[in-house]
Simulated scan of single mutants.
Amino acid sequence: MTRVLTARTVNGIACYSPDVAESYADYPDAAFEVTDAEVERSFWVRSRNRLFGWLVQQDVTRLGRANLLDIGCGTGSFLGKIIDMPGLSATGSEIYLSGLKIAQKRQPRAEFIQFDVTQGVLDRQFDIITAFDVLEHVEQDEAGFRNIHDMLSDDGTYIMSVPQHAFLWSRLDEIVHHKRRYSRADLLTKLIAVGFEPQRVTSQVFFLFPLVVVSRLLDRSISGAAPTDDAQALLARVSFPRPVNWLFDKIMRLDEALIRMGLSLPFGSTLIVVARKSGA
């Protein structure tokens, strides 16, 4: 039987999984400040927010009104892009308090809670659940998928992304505590097993994929000489000069355009799945 979690307040935040709120076992504490500093400049984050914002809008239009839960909201970047969407009520959840404290400052109008999706479910259901680059951080991803399924309304939609292709594993995956990179077959098998029916499956970072492959291979070869401090090492890998961010942002728009047209891109460093409950 699925465990329904209850909250207690810690530092002004409703915590449904307080025992892990400050463990930082699956994501480094310092990474929240690093990613928050880069979020507005990063071509990857900007592209992700545009595409996923569009996907959410499709479902809000379909449903008329929707209650959304963003699992692993980090510092609240995505919620900030959709919070004013007509008909949408959004809640951000994050397992670690460091990210939530930044998110609350950045998005004071949004609701944020502390929650470990592998431990159980919340005492309410949601019409849209999103989890962008989250489940690769946890050992028990099947439990996470099952709990997400149980929290989703019968006609709701689950929108998710994960890092793809095991051969791209590099020092970056280790820095941010990834447990795996998924294959398309592995992810779909796990989703179907808990009762999801994929509606849309596509890769992202398609046109930039050759550069991703080269950068990850180089990362493996120089990792021994790279900074050992996780914050410095992460910053070195996610920070790009302004002209590079501008150029890559334009290239990512090609990915977005093809996905909006309904095409499934065959490969890329990110895998995206839009799913609903089987038989819904």
Rank of each mutant, 00 (worst) to 15 (best):
R171N: 15
S221Y: 09
G195F: 01
E174L: 11
S215L: 11
G262P: 09
K179A: 07
R242M: 12
R253A: 12
L172P: 08
L247G: 15
D255H: 04
R276Q: 14
S269W: 05
T228C: 09
V201N: 00
D219Y: 09
R184L: 00
E256G: 07
E174S: 14
S239Q: 15
H177L: 13
L263V: 02
F196D: 07
L247S: 14
A257W: 04
R181W: 03
V212L: 06
I272M: 05
G224W: 00
L271S: 02
L271E: 02
S264P: 11
Y182A: 02
F209K: 00
L217H: 10
V212I: 10
F207K: 01
G268Y: 02
V201Y: 04
L217E: 12
L265P: 07
R253K: 13
K277T: 00
L211E: 00
W246K: 15
L265Y: 03
D219E: 15
E197T: 09
T202P: 11
Q204H: 11
L187T: 03
A257S: 13
G268D: 06
L265H: 05
R237V: 11
R253I: 03
V194Q: 05
R184A: 01
F248L: 15
H177N: 09
R200A: 09
E256F: 06
T189A: 15
V205Q: 04
I251R: 06
R216H: 08
V273E: 01
S183T: 03
S183K: 03
V273I: 05
R253E: 07
V205A: 05
A193H: 08
T228M: 10
K250H: 13
S221M: 14
F267S: 00
L172F: 15
A226M: 14
R171W: 12
A193I: 04
